[in-house]
Design a protein around this nucleic acid. Structure first.
Lengths: 318, 318
DNA sequence: GCACTATACATAACATGTTATGTATAGGTG
DNA sequence: CACCTATACATAACATGTTATGTATAGTGC
C-alpha cells in the first residue's frame, strides 16, 4: 500500500507531522525506560525548563513550554508525584505557585543531562541531518508564519489552482457560457468544446485549469487546447461575474502560462474580440502580443473573433 | 519567557514536532468547521485514502495511513456514524471488512476536494515554503532514517561530545588519574590542574571536553589549556581503560581540534612520553607533528615528558 | 479432522494533547 | 469598603494517538 499522507503532500502536513511526532515520542519513551527514568516523555519539557531557567510559576512554565496551562499542570502533578519537583505558594500573591526541582529532581536532571540527553540530541541531529538547511530552522519559520497568520486565514484568502477532473466539466461549461452569452452568442464551436472538454482538450494532450478562491469555490477556468502540429490555443478562459475584481483571472492566466512553458509546444495563441478590453489588457500585461498572422490563420474559428495574440514562448520568462 | 523547546534544539525535536502538529490539527479543526464538515480532522486521512485508493480493508487502510489499527477502527466508526462510509464483510474471508464510501461520503469528499483541500494545500505549502529544500522531503527523509535505525538505537551507539560543567570535575580527575598513575606517577602539576580545572583552565579561557558513549556515560576527557600569550597545551586527555577500543579517543581528539581551530590561538602543542605509543600514533594520525622546539620550551612541565608535538593550526583543515 | 497458530478486526485502558469551566485571590472603582 | 473584573491555577470532558488483549475465523501440521 502506498502512503496516503505522503501522497497528499502539503494537504496532509498536519497529519504527517503528528504521525512523525507520535513516533518520536514512542522512541523517547523507550529511551527513558532504558535509562530507568521517568516513564512519560511528556514530563521532559517541564524538567528541562526548570533545569535551564530555574524555579518557575505555572504561568511562566506555560509560556516557556508553549503548551496549554492544563498540560503544564498535569506534568507538574506527575513530577511532584515522583518527588522530582515541589511547589511553594508565592508570598506576595497567593494564587501563584512556584515550581522548583527537589534535590532528587536536580540529581535526576543532572544524570540525564550527563548520560542521556547528549546522546538523544546527537541521534536526533544525525537523523534529521540533510544536505539542506536545518529542520529546526524550518520548524521555527513555520511557527513564526503561523503566529503571523493562521492556516485557516491563509486557506480562506487567495487563489488555488485546480486541475481538470470530470466532475468539473459542468463548471467549465457554466463559467464560459456565462460570459460568452453575456457579451456575444454561444457558437456551435463553443458548445462542442464546452460539452466535450475531455475528448476535445484533455485526451488530445491539452490542459484545463480552474481557479478556486477560499470562500467562493471554483470561480474561473482556462484551457490550453492543442489545435495541430504542436500549436496550442489558449481558450475558454473566464471568471464568474460574481467573483470579478479579485485578480482571479490574472492568477489563472499566470498559472496557465507557467504550465504552457513546461509543455512541448510550437506556438501558443489566443483569439478574442476588441470588446473584451479588460481581457486584452490582461493578456498584454502577462506577455501576449498582437499577431495579425495568427488572426489570418485561425481567426475563422469564431464569428466573434477580430483579435489574435500570441505568446512568445522562447522569451525570457522574467 | 524564552521557548525551552527551541532552546533545546534537537534534544526536543519530538516535543517540538508534537507541539507544531497539535497546532496544525487545531487549525484543521477550525477549517473543517468553517466548511460545515466533519468535526474531527482525524477522519481526514481515512477519507482521503478511500477517495484515492478506492475501497480498502481495515488492514490495507492501516498500511496506507501508517497509524495503528485501533486508530483506523476508530476513524472508521466515526465515518460510519456520520453515514460517510460503510463496511461489507468479505465473502472469501469473513474476518475481513471492506470499507467503502457511501454516496454521501463520495459527495462530501468531492465537495471538499473541490472547495477546501486545494486551499488548505496551498496555504500549508505557502506557510512551509522557504528558501531551502522542501519540508516534506525532510520529513520523508526522517521517516526513512527512522525505518532504517530507531532513535534509541542511534542514541545508544556512537559518541557524544559534552562540554565542561562543574559536576564533571570529578570525572575529569578520575579519568586522568587512572591512566597517569597507571603508567607514570601523578605529579604535583597534574594534581593541581586536575583538582582545579575551573580556575586553571576554564576561567583562563581554556576548554575541557568530554566524550560520552550511549551505554557507558562519560568515558573520556581532554583539555585545551592556555599557557601564555595565546599558546595552548592540549593536555589531560584520557579514556577510561574499561571503555577503550571504541575509538572514543579519536572522536574526542577530532572534536577538540575542531574546537581549537575556532579559537583564537597562536599555537597548540602537547607533551607526552615515548611509552604512550598508541596515543602518539593517534596524534600523528590527526595531524600533530613532532616538535623539538616545543619540547625545549615546555618539556620541563612534567617529569615524564620526553616528546612534544604541535598542531599546524594554519594548515588546510581537510 | 483436530488442535495449534496466525490473522483480522474490536475493545479496553491509558498517554497526552486540547477547550471549557470552576475556584480562589488580586486589584480597581463606585 | 463592597463589588466587579481579571488572573492563577485546578478540574472536567473530550480528541486522538498508543499498547495490550479479546474474539472470530483461516490456515497448517500431525
Amino acid at each position: 500500500m502506498p502512503d496516503i499522507l505522503q501522497d497528499l503532500g502539503y494537504l496532509a502536513l498536519g497529519s504527517r507531522l503528528k504521525r512523525l511526532a507520535e513516533r518520536l515520542q514512542a522512541e523517547a519513551t523507550q529511551i527513558f525506560e532504558q535509562n530507568c527514568f521517568i516513564t512519560q516523555p511528556s514530563h521532559f519539557p517541564l524538567l528541562a525548563a526548570l533545569d535551564r531557567y530555574g524555579p518557575l510559576t505555572v504561568t511562566e512554565a506555560v509560556s516557556a513550554l508553549g503548551v496549554s496551562q492544563p498540560a503544564v499542570t498535569r506534568s507538574l502533578v506527575g513530577l511532584v508525584d515522583m518527588g522530582l519537583a515541589e511547589t511553594t505558594v508565592s508570598e506576595t500573591d497567593r494564587r501563584q505557585k512556584t515550581i522548583s526541582l527537589t534535590e532528587a529532581g536536580t540529581a535526576a536532571v543532572a544524570r540525564m543531562k550527563r548520560d542521556v540527553w547528549p546522546h538523544v540530541a546527537r541521534a536526533a541531529a544525525e537523523m534529521a541531518a540533510g544536505p539542506d538547511a536545518s529542520l529546526l530552522d524550518q520548524i521555527t519559520r513555520i511557527e513564526a508564519a503561523l503566529d503571523a497568520k493562521s492556516l485557516s486565514e491563509r486557506a480562506t484568502s487567495g487563489h488555488a489552482l485546480i486541475e481538470y477532473s470530470d466532475d468539473l466539466a459542468g463548471a467549465f461549461y457554466d463559467i464560459n457560457a456565462e460570459w460568452i452569452s453575456d457579451m456575444f452568442t454561444l457558437e456551435p464551436n463553443d458548445i462542442a468544446i464546452l460539452s466535450n472538454p475531455k475528448e476535445l482538450i484533455i485526451d488530445k494532450g491539452g490542459t484545463i485549469l480552474f481557479v478556486s478562491t477560499g470562500g467562493l469555490g471554483i470561480v474561473g477556468t482556462c484551457a490550453l487546447m492543442p489545435v495541430k502540429d504542436g500549436h496550442f490555443e489558449l481558450t475558454k478562459m473566464g471568471v464568474l461575474k460574481s467573483a470579478r475584481g479579485r485578480k482571479s483571472g490574472e492568477f489563472l492566466l499566470a498559472k496557465a502560462l507557467e504550465r504552457a512553458r513546461t509543455m512541448e509546444m510550437n506556438s501558443l495563441y489566443l483569439l478574442t474580440n476588441r470588446k473584451c478590453a479588460a481581457a486584452i489588457h490582461l493578456y498584454e500585461k502577462l506577455g501576449f502580443e498582437h499577431d495579425a498572422g495568427m488572426l489570418a490563420t485561425y481567426g475563422q474559428r469564431y464569428d466573434r473573433c477580430d483579435v489574435a495574440m500570441s505568446y512568445p514562448l522562447d522569451a525570457p520568462t522574467a
